[in-house]
Amino acid sequence: MQISIPVTKEKTSASQAHLTEPVAVRLLLIALALGFLSLFLFVPLAAVFAQAFEKGAGAYLAAISEPEALAAIKLTLLAAGISVPLNLVFGVAAAWTIAKFDFPGKSLLVTLNDLPFSISPVISGLIFVLIFGLHGWVGEWLFEHDIEVLFAVPAIVLATVFVTFPFVARELIPLMQSQGKDEEEAALVLGAGGFTTFFRVTLPNIKWGVLYGVILCNARAMGEFGAVSVVSGHIRGLTNTVPLHVEILYNEYNFAAAFAVASLLALLALLTVGLKSLTEWRMRQQMSSE
């Protein structure tokens, strides 16, 4: 006993030194990482706000409250307001099917669900041009019946739904798979109906996952540029979303106004990453309390 104590002590301190790097190396690595993040993340982020207020608060407020900016904000809210609920319902349905049942082709369904993520935004827009354009599948029919889809609001909404399609489902599928179906089975055996089981048992278990998916889905819906740019037609005050409005202002060399409107989107992004960390933290809490 008397001998073994100093030996273990020495051993731990020796291995402790071997389990981390010398102070100088640690500081160098931290400096390198922070330098990298500064060049590509922190400095650009600060620059958005600095340039937004370059011409003062008055110019800032004028830029974000002019009619074309307000029309763009309205259209962006509309596109997000339609696509987020649609993809939320789909995400819950897809996760329910995939997590609670076994059927052939299940992994194919999961892979297909992620498809819109692996496609360039420009191509996501292009497919709607190929369908609704004048030379597209239904273009002529739409033209004869005087229905505007392409270069109008419907195509913007459709493109937004397409690019934000996987967000909720890809969060909920692994979450519901890990939770299994014991609790739902217990509720059903005790006589609860299907919808009661979902709302009283499943939903409380997955609420943070749902919120997480909705936050990410909404950020992408409001920020999508490439796909929406292809189908929008860029009609000011009519088919411009906020990101497209930023592009127009920037290309007109109206930099202060462009960055003022851009700062709204940057604020949304900051809010998104903040809420995202918060829900991640709540999800971890929920998991460790179970």
């Binding site: 540029f225 906020v242 990453v273």
Partner: peptide, 17 residues
């Protein structure tokens, strides 16, 4: 948390910045 910013920041904003 900020590491996720490129996922959340609209690409047009990233571009002009």
């Amino acid at each position: 948390a900020l590491v996720d910013l490129p996922f959340a920041l609209p690409t047009a904003v990233a571009g002009i910045t």
